[in-house]
Computed example of a mutant assay.
Amino acid sequence: MSAGLPLLVTRADPGGATTVERARQAGLDARHLPLFAARPLDWDVPDPAAFDALLMTSAQAAGLGGPGLAALADLHVHAVGEATADAARQAGLTVATVGDSDARTLVGAMASSSIGRLLWLCGRERTVFEAAGIAVTALPVYAVDVVPPPPGWDGLIAAPAVVMGHSARGAERIAELAGDRRKHLTLLAISAAVAAAAGEGWSKKAVSEHPDDGAMLAEAHALCHKGAQ
């Protein structure tokens, strides 16, 4: 079976490399084109007693959080997406709930619980959201820096392809770099908010049914083969 249109994976590693590997195992023509690089930040561990639970919206928080995470192990994690939950477990943390939408929806579902104080282990750049009835303290533990497009980027976006957007910031950068060439590109977004951040003018925009790699790659499989027909 033909691999169909190329699938361009732009997220920072190690997540990007993992997505590419999974996509290739599924028979897709996945290209590793990270537009960002993630790195840990120095951070001070707050008093765990000041919080009821942890919030994680990216696997990078667990993967790059470092030794300070062990001091917060008594706080259970509320994670957005199964990949984030898996990373938290691998870091030695206990996962209480896994949301299948976004941070606002996940936190909103806690409004009737006994959780009133959340410590959000997040990135330096993050999307602000309202959390009625719950105090959310953001603690950046990693940064995702912009890097120049890898070799081959211009050639690949000059022809039809499917481009994955894993974050609003990523979608904005993809749109900026694609410019008018987006008219023959398909944007596959991890959420509706990410799709909105990419703007208009794409050949097609699609939103993953769930905010995780499995759902995105299932959608990518359909898009890559449909677009190649």
Rank of each mutant, 00 (worst) to 15 (best):
140 P>S: 05
93 L>E: 05
71 A>R: 15
116 G>Q: 11
36 F>H: 09
50 A>E: 14
52 D>W: 08
40 P>L: 05
123 G>K: 09
38 A>T: 04
117 R>M: 10
146 V>Q: 15
103 A>W: 09
208 S>P: 02
204 K>I: 05
37 A>F: 06
127 T>V: 15
179 G>K: 01
160 P>I: 04
86 D>T: 08
71 A>I: 08
158 A>Q: 12
15 G>H: 11
151 P>T: 11
135 A>S: 14
42 D>E: 15
139 L>A: 10
36 F>G: 02
169 R>V: 11
214 G>M: 08
55 L>P: 00
111 A>M: 10
39 R>K: 14
209 E>M: 07
49 A>C: 12
205 K>W: 09
79 A>S: 03
154 D>Y: 04
66 G>I: 08
103 A>H: 05
47 D>P: 00
198 A>H: 03
64 L>G: 02
29 D>Y: 10
122 C>N: 07
33 L>I: 01
196 A>C: 08
177 L>F: 10
25 Q>F: 10
98 V>N: 06
100 D>F: 14
200 E>V: 01
220 A>F: 11
91 A>N: 01
185 L>E: 06
129 F>E: 07
108 G>W: 11
154 D>I: 08
177 L>W: 09
59 A>T: 04
5 L>E: 00
207 V>A: 03
98 V>K: 06
70 A>R: 13
167 S>Q: 07
208 S>I: 02
150 P>Y: 11
161 A>L: 06
76 H>W: 14
28 L>M: 14
131 A>E: 13
201 G>I: 11
124 R>V: 12
35 L>E: 02
148 P>E: 08
147 V>I: 13
107 V>W: 08
212 D>H: 12
181 R>N: 11
62 A>D: 03
78 H>E: 13
166 H>T: 09
110 M>I: 06
131 A>P: 01
108 G>R: 05
50 A>M: 12
23 A>S: 09
179 G>Y: 09
34 P>A: 03
8 L>V: 02
188 L>W: 04
14 P>G: 08
188 L>S: 02
169 R>T: 12
12 A>S: 10
61 A>I: 06
52 D>H: 03
195 A>N: 01
118 L>R: 03
102 D>M: 11
168 A>C: 15
201 G>Q: 12
67 P>R: 07
111 A>I: 12
27 G>K: 05
128 V>Q: 15
166 H>P: 00
183 K>Y: 09
8 L>K: 00
156 L>M: 14
163 V>H: 01
